[in-house]
């Protein structure tokens, strides 16, 4: 049985980049009979990127390379590797690129710190703003003179045309 390797086609850019026949995405022939192992293989498949596709996991992709990688994952699992070892094995061969969940290393430090940084920074900004402005909410408002109030009410009721 010949297997067509679907080349990823890049659809024009506003659109999502997707690949050929999704029904190729997972072939039952690859699957484990043991549901526990199969679940592990699928979970790992979601952590690994199909190296030719745009941000698709090998679990979701139908590219030929994704299938090859799924087979590798299953081979490693069958060989008794732990999840970590499987990921590491693939990382050594395909590079960091293959991990959808980037590792915390020196060069991804900013990436992992950024979310916290955004929260802290924007939180601080808001805190400063509140500190400066929020106090006033509890103080009584300065009163308007009766004359001003009358004029304002006239304005608001539309009686006074132009000042």
């Amino acid at each position: 049985m010949k297997r067509a390797v679907m080349k990823p086609i890049l659809i024009s850019a506003v659109l999502l980049a997707m690949t050929g026949a999704p029904a190729h995405a997972l072939d039952p022939n690859e699957m484990f009979d043991d549901p526990v192992l199969e679940q592990r293989a699928r979970d790992l498949g979601r952590e690994l990127r199909c190296v030719k596709c745009r941000n698709q996991s090998i679990f979701d992709s139908n590219a030929g390379i994704a299938q090859d990688m799924r087979v590798v994952v299953r081979e490693r699992i069958a060989a008794g590797d732990s999840d970590e070892e499987v990921l590491e094995w693939l990382r050594e061969r395909y590079g960091d690129y293959v991990l959808l969940n980037p590792r915390a290393t020196g060069q991804t430090a900013l990436l992992w710190l950024a979310p916290l940084g955004f929260l802290v920074l924007s939180g601080l900004g808001a805190g400063v703003y509140l500190y400066r402005h929020a106090g006033g909410g509890d103080a009584p408002d300065p009163a308007l003179s009766d004359e001003d109030r009358a004029r304002a009410q006239a304005l608001l009721s539309g009686r006074e045309k132009t000042p």
């Binding site: 009163a143 001003d148 304005l155 000042p163």
Partner: peptide, 19 residues
């Protein structure tokens, strides 16, 4: 009452812009 007064004050400021 407080809200009304605040709105009136803003209306006065806005009216001044017309000048």
């Amino acid at each position: 009452e407080a809200a009304r007064m605040e709105i009136e004050r803003r209306a006065l400021v806005a009216a001044r812009h017309m000048d």
